[in-house]
C-alpha cells in the first residue's frame, strides 16, 4: 500500500508540474503551491541530512574511530556557524566575515590544487590509458587547441589559415552539442520512466 501511495504521488506531481508549465496562466497558482511544497520538503530533507551527518560524526567521536579529530573540527565549525547564524542573523556583517574568511581561502586553495593536478593530468594520460586511438586523439586535440588559444597563428594574418582555425574552433562546439543532445535524450527518457512509474528512485 505504501509503495502504491508513493508511486501515485510521484506520478501525479510530475504530470501536474508538466501541465502547469505548459498551461501557465490557468495552473500558475497550483505550480507555485507545488514549488513551495517542493522547496519546503527539500529544505527539510537538507535538515535531516545535516542531522544524520552530525550523528555520524558524533558516533565517530564516541567510538574513537581513526581520524575522529576531523569530526571534532567539523562539529566545532558547524556549531559556531549555526549558532552565529541563529543569534546574529545571516545578514550580519560580522557573521558574513566569519563565513567568508573560512570559505573563500579554502575554496581558492582547492582551485589552486585543481589547477596543479590538471597540469599533471596530461602527462599521466598515456601511463594510465596507454596508447589507444582515444588517448592519442585526446592528446593531439589538447595540443592543437593550446596552440590556437595562444593566438600566435591568428596574428600571422593569413586568411586561409584564419578560416581553418575558425573551422577547428567550431569542432568542440559541435562535439559538445552532440554529447548534450545524447544527455538530454537520456534525461528525457529517465523522466518519462519516472512519470510512468517504471523507475522508482524513492523505493526498492
Amino acid at each position: 500500500m505504501k509503495k502504491i501511495v508513493s508511486i501515485v504521488i510521484a506520478i501525479s506531481t510530475g504530470i501536474l508540474v508538466i501541465a502547469a508549465l505548459i498551461f501557465r496562466p490557468q495552473f500558475n497558482p497550483l505550480l507555485s503551491l507545488i514549488l513551495r511544497w517542493g522547496i519546503t520538503i527539500g529544505s527539510m530533507a537538507a535538515l535531516v541530512g545535516i542531522a544524520v551527518l552530525i550523528k555520524t560524526h558524533l558516533q565517530r567521536i564516541a567510538v574513537g574511530k581513526r581520524g575522529f579529530f576531523f569530526s571534532l573540527i567539523v562539529l566545532f565549525g558547524f556549531s559556531v556557524s549555526f549558532l552565529g547564524g541563529m543569534l546574529l542573523g545571516v545578514a550580519n556583517p560580522a557573521y558574513q566575515l566569519w563565513i567568508s574568511s573560512i570559505q573563500l581561502p579554502l575554496e581558492i586553495s582547492f582551485l589552486g590544487l585543481l589547477t596543479l593536478i590538471l597540469t599533471t593530468t596530461g602527462f599521466r594520460l598515456y601511463r594510465l590509458k596507454g596508447w589507444t586511438p582515444l588517448s592519442i586523439s585526446f592528446g593531439i586535440s589538447a595540443v592543437v587547441f593550446l596552440i590556437i588559444a595562444m593566438g600566435y597563428l591568428q596574428g600571422l594574418g593569413n586568411p586561409t589559415l584564419d578560416r581553418v582555425i575558425e573551422f577547428i574552433q567550431r569542432l568542440p562546439i559541435a562535439g559538445g552539442r552532440g554529447i548534450l543532445i545524447g544527455m538530454a535524450l537520456g534525461a528525457l527518457v529517465v523522466g518519462i520512466r519516472v512519470l510512468i512509474g517504471v523507475e522508482r528512485p524513492y523505493g526498492e
Binding site: I41, G42, S43, M44, A45, A46, L47, V48, G49, I50, V52, P201, Y202, G203, E204
Partner: peptide
C-alpha cells in the same frame, strides 16, 4: 555520499527498502 539533502534522503530510503526487500 550525497551532495544534496533530497538525494541523501532518497539514498537512505533506497538502502532501507533494499535491505528490507
Amino acid at each position: 555520499l550525497s551532495g544534496d539533502g533530497s538525494l541523501a534522503s532518497m539514498s537512505q530510503v533506497a538502502l532501507t527498502e533494499t535491505y528490507r526487500g
